[in-house]
């Protein structure tokens, strides 16, 4: 369920994000992207990195968006905050989205603001009916102000709360069903969270309505040992793990092909490494399509 493209200020619709592999737009790669225009189906930018009034970053993004569909991924809406979504932040995002006209926007099923303090991390929610009402209210308000559908991403988690009584995937599905928002399914997060919290990754993905999933993310994670326990840390600092590629193949079976992003934003590798990672996702997407066409032909 990709949101309908909205007209640009010039009245020309932005191209939609295709069900192909994209990469995260990182500052060290901007010049090379501008100079060489490598082949990649789409780019995803972190909204909060482009909120400044002006300067080189936003000027470069203006240039890049002419050649690539841009998806904006924000981390600061704090859709799970009991105190609601900050109207000032919504206004800043609205201004940015009017300027760049992204083909898709997303944020997370998490919170990062409490008492007006921004904690700069995607903190988990207790999955309760109170939290469900709050998230739905915040998502609805966001969609109203921005005038478009948002995709909400499943978080990576290292803890759960005693008060939680709704499985996360069902909670996320309920948010999508009640607000009309889409889901950004982060395959690495499913893997990391179900490992850290003893969940079942396949059951998680089967609990979602495939129609509501508008995008997928793939990223690397770190393996840490804390007090004799193996903990997976979602640090986006390495190549996608083999187990996550396998889970992605299963996600294609369960949900279908979707625009798929390679996220690698700490210890950022050279651009060719990132593009090679994207081509691995691309290969799985096209292989999936071919086997399907084959099936239908028979």
């Amino acid at each position: 369920m990709v949101p309908a493209p909205s007209p640009t200020p010039m009245g020309r619709p932005s191209p939609p994000v295709p069900a192909r592999a994209g990469i995260g737009l990182r500052h060290p790669h901007v010049q090379r992207l501008l100079d060489e225009r490598p082949k990649v189906a789409w780019l995803e930018a972190h909204s909060e990195n482009y909120l400044a009034a002006g300067g080189p970053r936003i000027v470069a993004l203006d240039a890049i968006r002419r050649d690539y569909p841009i998806s904006f991924h924000s981390v600061g809406l704090s859709l799970g905050s009991a105190e609601g979504v900050d109207p000032a932040h919504l206004a800043r995002l609205a201004m940015l989205y009017r300027r760049i006209e992204p083909t898709q926007i997303s944020d997370h099923l998490s919170w990062s603001v409490s008492g007006g303090v921004y904690l700069n991390d995607l903190l988990p929610l207790p999955y309760t009916s109170e939290a469900l009402d709050i998230v739905c209210r915040n998502v609805a308000r966001t969609q109203d102000v921005l005038g478009r559908t948002i995709l909400v991403e499943n978080p990576s988690a290292y803890l759960s709360y005693a008060a939680s009584h709704i499985p996360e995937a069902e909670f996320l599905a309920a948010v999508a069903q009640r607000t009309g928002c889409g889901i950004l399914l982060d395959i690495n997060n499913v893997y990391v969270s179900t490992h850290n919290l003893d969940g079942d990754a396949l059951r998680y993905m089967r609990s979602l309505n495939p129609e509501s999933v508008g995008e997928m993310h793939l990223a690397g994670h770190a393996v840490q040992h804390i007090a004799n326990h193996q903990v997976l840390i979602d640090d986006h600092g390495s190549a996608v793990a083999a187990e996550v590629w396998h889970l992605y193949e299963q996600a294609l079976e369960i949900i279908g092909p979707r625009p798929t992003l390679i996220e690698w934003d700490t210890r950022v590798p050279p651009l060719p490494t990132l593009l090679a990672e994207a081509s691995r996702a691309e290969a799985r997407l096209s292989e999936f399509r071919q086997t399907r066409i084959h099936c239908y032909a028979e």
């Binding site: 909120l51 400044a52 981390v75 900050d86 000032a88 932040h89 303090v117 921004y118 904690l119």
Partner: peptide
């Protein structure tokens, strides 16, 4: 003085 807004360039 923790951040008061999710715009870390500020």
């Amino acid at each position: 003085r923790p951040p008061r807004q999710p715009q870390l360039s500020a």
